[in-house]
Simulated assay, not measured.
Amino acid sequence: MSRALFTEHELAALRLLAQGRTQVEIARTLRIRPETVGRLLNRARILLRARTLPHAVARGYETGVLGPPPHDHGAGQEEDRPSGPGGPNRGQEAAG
């Protein structure tokens, strides 16, 4: 799917929605009315052939409209990070 089908406002609203922002927060950020945000997101949802707004975000990532999904730092990388006082290796220093 081509980003050219979307207006900059539609893409901006969809990106903010993907970040977990509410329609009111998106409206404040883009300096538009919440009703306008609803229309922008609805049109993006239709273009993405999504049933719901969360589905539109998922489809946005699947189709590349939103770019690659954010990298998940949580899976299998604890050994690469230093452990603080409350980290996963808590209490193991004294045991060794």
Rank of each mutant, 00 (worst) to 15 (best):
G84I: 08
L5V: 11
L14V: 02
A44G: 02
L17W: 05
R28K: 14
T52Y: 15
R15K: 10
E35V: 11
G84R: 12
L53W: 14
R28N: 14
P68A: 11
R45I: 04
A56F: 07
E10G: 04
G86N: 15
H73V: 10
Y61P: 00
N42C: 09
T63A: 02
G87Y: 04
Q92H: 14
R3Q: 04
P54Q: 06
T36S: 12
Q92C: 10
A44Q: 00
G74Q: 12
G87E: 13
G74L: 14
L40T: 04
R33Q: 11
P34F: 09
L53M: 15
L11T: 02
G87H: 13
A58W: 11
E79I: 15
G96Q: 15
L5C: 05
R51N: 10
R49W: 12
E78N: 13
L11K: 07
L11G: 01
L66N: 01
T29R: 15
G76E: 01
E8V: 07
E25W: 05
H71D: 10
A50F: 10
G67A: 07
L66V: 00
R39E: 13
Q23L: 08
H55T: 10
V57F: 04
A58P: 06
E93R: 15
G67H: 02
H9K: 15
P70C: 08
H55G: 12
T22Q: 10
G91S: 11
Q92K: 12
I32N: 01
E25T: 00
L5I: 05
R90I: 07
T7G: 06
F6H: 05
G60K: 01
T29N: 10
R31E: 12
R21P: 02
A13P: 10
S2R: 07
T22Y: 00
L48K: 08
Y61C: 06
H73T: 03
V65M: 06
A13L: 05
G76S: 05
A44D: 05
L48N: 02
N89I: 02
T36Y: 13
E93V: 14
R21Q: 13
R45E: 09
G87T: 11
H9Y: 09
E79N: 07
R49N: 14
L17R: 11
A13G: 03
P88C: 08
A44V: 01
R15E: 00
R33P: 00
L5P: 00
G91T: 00
E93K: 12
L53D: 02
